[in-house]
Amino acid sequence: MKNFLKIFSLIILFSSISLSTQAAEKVEYLKTDWSFKGLFGKFDRASLQRGYQVYTEVCSSCHSMKYLSYRNLAEKGGPEFSEAEAKAIAASYEVKDGPNADGEMFTRPGKLSDKFVMPYDNVQAAQAANGGAYPPDMSVLVKARGGGVDYIYSLLQGYEDPPAGVTLDDGVYYNKYMYGNKIKMANQLSDGLVEYSDGTRATVEQMSKDVTTFLMWSAEPHLESRHQMGFKAILYLIILTILVYFSMKKIWSRVETEI
């Protein structure tokens, strides 16, 4: 048993080393409390809904979210808009469909099964409209950046005047959390930019947090069920391990060996 604990702690040690080597690359990001972290972490519904508002009113003019569908907005574990609300949101978009019987493409109001409408038809159009820089698709953006939510949250608030000696080209901005500090997206958020219907004050910090929460959900839409299932699974495994341990003791008591 002693031997076993040694192995077990070795595995834990290994895991923590692997975690810390990743941490070693991290910059000091701005900190905030994320409701979805931890063993029982869940999304803050109101924050998700506000985050969706920030996305549609601010980000969506350049950034696509091609893996999300309008139906996702009403799904469990997400912003949980009511089905009627999600339908109304979908219907407020013009979706290209077709070809119809005459062989022509046409537009119609969006349905729940439609994917989020993209701001540009393709990558080239997006680049042409943004001075050569492609505004990345945001569906899995949180998972595609080393610092995850903390990075996005900090980046949105990280705009500063460039320090002396740094010169910026036209259309390039200084951001202290950006890799290389130069970013082609201008500062988008300012206090009171959106008007939250639930009365929350739309500070830059609040909007950053809300939209980042929304992006976390879009990257991990099953996070809540993952946490719930994980807790049950690990609890179950512990119970079974204890049972097996005592069964093992019983069985091995027939031979005189320490186990």
């Binding site: 179950y236 119970i239 079974l240 049972l243 069964s247």
Partner: peptide, 15 residues
């Protein structure tokens, strides 16, 4: 002892 083994089997089967 029998109970222990039965319980272990049952819990294992659920998993």
């Amino acid at each position: 002892r029998d109970f222990l083994f039965t319980a272990t089997y049952a819990v294992g089967a659920v998993g």
